[in-house]
Design a protein around this nucleic acid. Sequence first.
RNA 1: GCCCCCAUCGUCUAGCGGCCUAGGACACCGGCCUUUCAAGCCGGCGGCACGGAUUCGAAUUCCGUUGGGGGCACCA
Length: 548
Amino acid sequence: MCPSGHCSPVPRCGKPASGGPAQRMRYDERPMVETSHPRVRFAPSPTGYLHLGSARTGLYNFIFARQHEGTFVLRIEDTDLSRSTDQAIVQILASMKEMGLQWDEGPGVPGPHGPYRQTERDSIYHEHVARLLETGHLYPCFCTAEELEAERTAAQADGRDSVYSGKCRALAAEEVQRRQTAGEPYTLRVRVPEGRTVFHDILRGDVAFENDTIGDFIVQRSDGTVTYNLAVVVDDVTMEITHVIRGDDHISNTPKQVVIYEALGAGVPEFLHMPLLFGTDRKKLSKRHGATKLEQLTAEGFLVDVVRNYLCFLSAEFDESMITWTLDDLVRSFDVTKLGTSPSIFDPEKLRWMNGRYVRAMTDEWLGGRLVEYLTRVGFYGDPVGVGELAAQGSQVLAAVVEDAESERLPPTVPDEEHEALTREIAPLVHEKVEVLADFIPMAGWFFRPLEFTPEALERLQATAGAAATLATAAAGLRDLPEWDVPAIETLVRELPPTLELKPKAVFAALRLGMSGQTVTPGLFESLWVLGRDQAVARLEQAAARLV
RNA sequence: GCCCCCAUCGUCUAGCGGCCUAGGACACCGGCCUUUCAAGCCGGCGGCACGGAUUCGAAUUCCGUUGGGGGCACCA
């Protein structure tokens, strides 16, 4: 029944799949994962940017490889010619580099198992197909797409498995010969053996499938190209992959792949199917859930390190101390084999909170640097008013516009020395308030543009008791202040309420509105100080003028 | 329809037969602090999907049901 005589696969690592019932194993009962120099791979399809879910898969592969001193292979699965683009490859590589996921073998990093693009591996696939054909594991099938379609619907109507009937399985050699020479198109199918296929999943234990629910599947199309299931297996075998870490949407493909491994007489790797990343509606995370790519998140002012840690800990126990972990920390301490198995929902709220925590854990200087980079990227310095209006609609709106601009390759604006210095001076004032970097703009954008009042703000100012007197007195006081420092400013401002016989709240409100045109700003004394004496006085006087 | 995976607060999770009156985090609500907004601290709300079985004892083991997801392609 097995012409090749290779049907007793010896798994390269881990326990051989037992024939017993699939049973969930507890962590401490799980066999230790082979830890000596595993080879793992991340195999994205370049049909677009790097999706956050894929990024997560890449991350886990990377961590696992580094943790066990293994090799991290990057392979481009671009066999779908109609959807794959070189531009997408460039984007994906860039995102991976941004996350620090450097690969050991793959595009740009030649290795002994290349090439690393499927479109360049055609001859390798066909060699293997030829071998499988010789050993009788494959047979030609002449069924047309229409026949198959009819078969499928009939099977479904009967409540049977909708798998191939095996019609061409036992075609006589002469008939095959005759139809092939007649030029009839045919595909190549795998002769799936009787019985069941069991494979081991590090997270779930053994998973079993009855082989008759798999059906003889196509491995080579009538145009001579090879299908995904064959390509992955041949790639993984020839690249000597020992651990396949991928999304659990691949679980149902796995038995087919195992059948090919076995037909090839190759060792079956260990599998780790990780839970998928879902949106808040419990569907696979997609564009309608908002940001699904790293670049859009960073355009909103999320830090790459935070996104990376968030993605990592989504299916694991959360601990505040990991918010500021580095990639090296993850490699040192994160255990991929203890991941949960239920799908994870991407929660932007928690990511935001984490980002805020991260920012607060860093120094003022660090924040200043990130802010300058960020504001430069979003074009704030070139157009503080326009970008400010965008940001007022929410950081996501801003990020979307920035992202579009970047894909059109608009040149970013460059900060001049004055803007950069001002940003760094403001950084300490907003340090406790910023969650994502974009929050800086509604909070402190007013420092960068002339005093401006919205009708509502002006109304507020007019409604504030004693505003005119407050503004005039404060302006005069600030002008004559011997020392221009925060304590002096504070002393002066605090003396105002008693002298003017006003409530402190009213005084503070008038000054805040008067200097910024806003009701929310960083600390009043610090803000006046950063503004500088001339600006501070001028603004308060301008505001006072609006009241007469 | 068939096959597979999954199932603890709204969300991410802890839980390994008695330490569970189910613990933590985000979000939400309230309080404190306070010149605004935050941050911070304190408190509150809120969950084992359902039904059987095993057991002295079940969130935990087994079976079923329900629900969600994925696959069943000459897509990857």
